[in-house]
């Protein structure tokens, strides 16, 4: 083997990192600037409403009559919250039960197909859920209580839509529980029920909680399902059979023809929606943070 005479270390390198590093950094910065752009443009479009009518009108005006310059968002906000909380009430326990089923109860030949089914349905377009809700669930509800499109219909379909995601995140949290805990509790002679409810689920509680909050955020931001099956009548819901209009649906319905102050009102509702979702996401992140250091 020939050892060639080493060249001096001080020679200038032809290091390709010097080319790539700033390029990649630029890309990363560009992606982050997107947030600034989004906030800037939402604000820019919303400012006429915030400035002119004053932001108070969004909460003080009786209801949403954009053509008469009345921009009360509260009925739609309540509708959104009602739909989402009912959907979560259904999806949370069912999702957790399904995760427990896959992890601890399902016979082994079922586990993979079951997970595949959940993954497939988690990736299903929301518009397909909406279509199915409109053609299947709404007529069934209408048979008991007209008109069928209602808080109940929206919550049912929304619950079904977020269920696969909730189940999969719960499953991930359950799988993160170390098996030594499992073995330790089993060695104490605990029953399966006691083991799951007393040891495993509490150990996974932060992961499960964060998953639930993220699912809530996703449900709150969801447009198509509530647009298609909730009925789109602007009113504060008094019963689960009332047709209502959610915040997201309102934007989708009126953006097509809104101008001036009306358009600004829609952008403001978009801002409020974003704020709500971000608070939830922050909450979830904090929960997860606690989980990592618990």
């Amino acid at each position: 083997m020939i050892w060639s005479k080493p060249s001096s270390l001080l020679l200038l390198p032809r290091n390709i990192d010097r080319l790539w590093q700033p390029l990649l950094a630029g890309m990363a910065v560009l992606c982050a600037v997107l947030l600034l752009l989004i906030v800037a443009f939402l604000l820019k479009e919303a400012i006429p409403a915030l400035h002119d009518g004053g932001w108070r009108s969004f909460f003080n005006d009786q209801s949403w009559y954009p053509l008469e310059n009345m921009f009360g968002l509260l009925p739609m906000l309540w509708a959104s919250l009602a739909i989402v909380s009912l959907a979560l009430l259904l999806a949370a326990p069912l999702g957790l039960a399904n995760a427990l089923f896959v992890r601890f109860y399902a016979p082994s030949f079922l586990v993979t197909p079951y997970r595949l089914m959940l993954a497939l349905l988690a990736g299903m377009p929301s518009v397909v859920y909406g279509l199915w809700g409109l053609t299947v669930i709404v007529p069934i509800i209408a048979a008991y209580h007209q008109p069928g499109t209602s808080v109940l219909a929206a919550s049912l379909v929304l619950a079904l839509m977020i269920l696969p995601t909730v189940a999969l995140t719960c499953l991930a949290a359950l799988e993160a529980v170390p098996s030594s805990l499992h073995a330790g509790a089993a060695a104490l002679g605990m029953s399966k029920q006691g083991l799951l409810l007393g040891v495993i689920v509490p150990a996974a509680r932060y992961g499960i909680g964060a998953g639930m909050v993220l699912a809530t955020a996703r449900a709150l931001g969801e447009t198509m399902v509530v647009l298609m099956v909730a009925g789109n009548v602007v009113q504060t819901p008094h019963s689960i059979f009332d047709p209502v209009r959610a915040l997201t649906a309102n934007i989708a319905l009126e953006m097509g023809y809104a101008t001036d102050l009306h358009r600004a009102g829609l952008f403001t509702s978009g801002l409020i929606l974003t704020l709500l979702v971000l608070v939830l996401a922050w909450f979830a992140a904090r929960t997860m943070h606690k989980y990592q250091y618990a």
Binding site: P6, S7, S8, L9, L10, L11, L12, P13, N15
Partner: peptide, 20 residues
């Protein structure tokens, strides 16, 4: 000091250094 250069203070090409 390696090969008369101070690898901490001199502006060296670390890639070439690590080859050697």
């Amino acid at each position: 000091y390696f090969d008369r250069d101070d690898i901490i203070h001199d502006a060296i090409d670390t890639m070439r250094l690590r080859r050697r």
